[in-house]
Amino acid sequence: MHKKVLNRDRASFFVITLPALLLYSFFYIYSVVLGFYYSMTDWDGLSRKFNFVWLENYGKILKNKAFFNSVTVTFRYAILMVVFTIVIGVLLAVALNSVKRFKTFFKSVFFFPAMISSVAVALIWDQVFIRALPNLAPLFGVANIASPLGNKQLALYAVLFVNLWQSLAMPTVIFIAGMQSIPDELYESAVIDGASMFDQFRFVTLPYLVPTITVNAILTLKGGITSFDYAKALTGGGPARSTMLIGIKIYIDAFGDTPKFSIANTESVLLFLVIALLSIVQLTISSRSGVNKA
């Protein structure tokens, strides 16, 4: 009787999850498999016929300088993104957590950018860089302040700044949630032991935040590597390829005027493999540290 009920429950659960499973299979698994398949063809995205070329595209891409330039730019961007998100996010969370009055107001202010679409944010900042920035020149006693988007050395940082301005809210909220799970007794004990504010942060807050930092780092790293919208709207990959993230390169190769869809798919597959590898490495390392780990 008990076994019968168990089976019936299992069947119910299976039926409930079936729509999600089917949708996931179609939109994710099927797409990924199809992507692998097209990466081994010579389909340009336009032709009605194409040939199977096995790993020829992989060989071509691994010798291509433009691809490696994009990979370098993307990794630089993603690593900077992770570092700034964690550092500023934690500091912001500590600051917001220690605010006694108008707590909700301040949290709302910092969360506001997250409510705007990324492309809209990019376009707003584009105008700020082009039109507002030069008008600030007299305040600093200089003749002109050039838009960082036109500077090969600064463009990536400008895109990163806009990205952070908009996307920092979510990691900060996660950090605040992580902090609220730290028992107050630990801080009280630390104070009795004569710990300074920094010591409290270093020896109490930080160890408890490790799992949260891990989650944020993984999410941000993934977001950084697959980033597309901010750079596309702000710079289109320029100037001189300085913000040519791999996402933009894939987009241009796939849907440019003379498309190379199979090449774009090959690039996507390589990106997929890199992200998968990084996630495994990061999860393995971070699971060995933290307050409740050996």
Binding site: K152, G237, A240, G256, D257, T258
Partner: peptide
């Protein structure tokens, strides 16, 4: 240029010229 070479070629050339203007 596009009447004789692909968009990929012109796009890549443009990036180089943009680099020249910067450096």
């Amino acid at each position: 240029f596009g009447s004789k070479v692909t968009t990929q070629v012109t796009t890549e050339l443009y990036q180089v010229v943009q680099g020249l203007l910067l450096d």
